[in-house]
Design a protein around this nucleic acid. Structure first.
Lengths: 131, 131
DNA sequence: CTAGTTGCAAATGCTTTGCTTCTGC
DNA sequence: GCAGAAGCAAAGCATTTGCAACTAG
């Protein structure tokens, strides 16, 4: 564990619930500790994701984002609601996906170990402010 | 509708159920009609997706893939099971997601118009051939 | 004719890699 | 002291864009 890796991890701890890209991390750490390279960020993010501390997420903006892994959620993580109008990301907990997974395993014999679920639509605010 | 666009669409019609990247399309059409540029492929794919004829899909291999949109499935499409070992993609129809979406809308007021669902795990064959 | 499309090549933007220097243990 | 890590800059890829030539209607 080097100071650079600690700094990256600490940033995610400080900003639980945010979805940061490598560039985001770079910009913040740049300000604090002037000497960190973008390559190191990429390497740290990959390492932390492999260690299970970070979770990769993707919102179709052509860059990989990461968020803190939350062990209290158990094996299943939350889902993301992506607003088509304002781009806001809303998180919802995972209640009803379990039965769907059980059903799929029963039908196909496929053993599910992870999932990626994203719902696209319009958030409450954007619906109200003139669709 | 130009001959190039027709050719791209025809390829997807001929290969229902496959998930083709721009490069895939390019390689095939290259063989047939020698004169088609990769830029045209990208532009055609985007156009056909906007027209609702193709559906964007993504399997974390760092390239955008497309598949035929199937209107018989109604608004809801099928899900993809991605095998971690052999990379095979299995399709399953959407049975149980509707209640989850209804629940989310009730709880959050978010109006869902589309979703992206992917399950990662191990297919039957890979489980049997020594995990 | 004329707007819209194509092909090519150059440009873009995210991410990875090579390699030398540095550093934690 | 040494294996592993960091920094920098160059390389890699998928995708996009500028632009002149072309083509469908």
């Amino acid at each position: 564990m080097t100071p650079q890796r600690k700094a990256v991890l600490q940033l995610f701890l400080d900003r639980r619930g945010e979805h940061l890209s490598a560039e985001d991390v770079y910009d913040v750490l740049r300000g604090e500790k002037s000497d960190i390279g973008i390559a190191t960020i990429y390497r740290s993010l990959e390492l932390l994701a492999e260690l299970g501390l970070l979770q990769r997420v993707n919102f179709d903006d052509d860059r990989t984002r990461y968020e803190m892994y939350d062990p209290t959620e158990g094996g299943h993580q939350h889902h993301h609601l992506v607003c088509k109008k304002c781009g806001k990301i809303i998180e919802v907990s995972d209640d009803l996906l379990e039965p769907l997974e059980k059903e799929i395993t029963k039908k196909t014999g496929f053993k599910i170990v992870d999932h990626q679920v994203k719902f696209i639509g319009y958030c409450k605010e954007c619906q109200e402010s003139g669709d």
